[in-house]
């Protein structure tokens, strides 16, 4: 990666979930790691997230989930496939193991559970974008 290139990440909370603190703190971590974060905020539908990700040409999508609204994440994965738009989607939040497994099966590339370190998130993003 040359000096001019920056990793661009879209961070959003999805569906009827108003827990924005996690998403904002992670956004801040990523900024501190030298990444550009397009932050969408809360109450975003899968359609809004895909549209923004396309317009912003992001490298990765990060979804925060604290409201057990995994159906929305599934819809997001399906919508991306339907639109032939493919970037890694990672999720973070309080997600029980069986749900995490189901999301991975749906194509989510990585789940970050509570107590994940900022380094682990940053390192993961760097590793998948460089691939």
């Amino acid at each position: 990666m040359s000096n001019n290139q920056r990793i661009k990440v879209l961070v959003s909370v999805i569906g009827l979930d108003g827990h924005f603190t996690g998403a904002e703190i992670v956004s801040r971590y990523l900024m501190d790691a030298g990444m550009e974060v397009v932050y969408l905020g809360i109450y975003q539908t899968p359609e809004m997230i895909v549209s923004a990700a396309i317009q912003e040409n992001v490298d990765v999508i990060g979804i925060s989930s604290h409201a057990a609204n995994y159906e929305q994440i599934n819809l997001l994965m399906e919508l991306m496939k339907k639109n032939n738009f493919s970037v890694p989607v990672m999720c973070g939040g309080s997600i029980p193991p069986q749900d995490a497994e189901a999301l991975i099966k749906k194509g989510v590339s990585k789940i970050f559970l509570p107590h994940s370190t900022s380094e682990s998130i940053v390192d993961y993003i760097v590793s998948i974008v460089k691939k």
Partner: peptide, 18 residues
């Protein structure tokens, strides 16, 4: 300091995203 950025203007323009 970091060269990173938080681009948050879309938050106020959500209704146009579709």
């Amino acid at each position: 300091l970091s060269g990173g950025a938080i681009l948050g203007d879309r938050v106020r323009m959500q209704r146009h995203s579709l």
